[in-house]
């Protein structure tokens, strides 16, 4: 619906529909939408990717420069992740400082890269205490139809995977940014008692709870984030993890390509 209020009637329809194992766009509960990734989309960025997950469209740019490390981490590169949910992408996005949703997305994506050592920040030191590589990951939503978490995460990983560290200032050749792991995030939404994966907007709007799980190429769990006010049982969490692992393996190839 164009207004933000979702009518009870539509909510009930989707609840019943998913409970019967179907979804409004014809997918099965564990089916993710079509994913396409265009790498090196933006010339002015050192790495970039435009991701389309169904009708959700996100552009991620990675800018890499040289700067000073943080004083308390002299032997580590600097990584900053931000997300802009610009009003162009949805009638529900407002201009202004980042909303809690934008901040949550940025922080979850950031942890997914930093804590997993997808990019090992300790390898990004030029002169300890003085000069390090500085990475900015900027997530720019373009069209919102649900599941920004996964779209932003795939875009970030894809952008990092094609990013170049320009060596001109150091008098060394350019080299690719080393990416050591491939954590793929999969988001599930719980609608009443049914769990569906890669929620589209109409599902996301009525979901009671949301769980994002990132698994790596070895099948290990690398990141998790639960959202919304509902709850999951322990069995449901295990189910989401094992499904996320399987779906993640299918998607990893697309992101790595």
């Amino acid at each position: 619906m164009s207004s933000e209020v979702v009518s009870e009637l539509m909510r009930e329809h989707i609840v019943k529909l998913v409970a019967s194992g179907r979804r409004a766009d014809g997918r099965g509960p564990e089916e993710t939408r079509k994913l396409t990734i265009e790498k090196n989309y933006i010339k002015t960025a050192e790495g970039s990717a435009r991701v389309r997950l169904g009708n959700t469209d996100v552009l991620v740019g990675v800018k890499i420069g040289i700067g000073e490390p943080y004083p308390d981490t002299p032997t580590s590169g600097v990584l900053t992740t931000s997300a802009e949910l610009v009003p162009l992408a949805s009638p529900t996005f407002e201009s202004g400082p980042p909303s809690p949703t934008a901040i949550e997305i940025a922080r979850v994506v950031d942890r997914g890269i930093r804590e997993t050592k997808t990019v090992d920040m300790s390898k990004l030191v030029i002169t300890p205490g003085e000069k390090v590589w500085v990475l900015f990951i900027d997530i720019h939503a373009l069209d919102y139809d649900g599941n920004l978490f996964d779209a932003a995460s795939y875009g970030t990983l894809a952008a990092l995977s094609c990013a170049t560290m320009r060596g001109a200032k150091l008098g060394v050749p350019d080299r690719p940014l080393p990416v050591d792991h491939w954590p793929i995030s999969i988001t599930a939404a719980k609608i009443r008692n049914t769990i569906v994966f890669d929620p589209a907007l109409d599902e996301e709007r009525i979901a009671d709870a949301r769980l994002t799980v990132a698994t790596d190429e070895n099948g290990d769990v690398r990141a998790m984030q639960k959202g919304l006010t509902g709850s999951f049982s322990y069995d449901e969490v295990r189910y989401v993890i094992s499904t996320a692992r399987r779906l993640g393996n299918e998607i990893r190839g697309i992101v790595r390509a």
């Binding site: 164009s2 009637l9 539509m10 329809h13």
Partner: peptide, 9 residues
């Protein structure tokens, strides 16, 4: 008032 069913835009 409508109840039940679904609305498609």
């Amino acid at each position: 008032r409508l109840s039940g069913g679904h609305i498609v835009e």
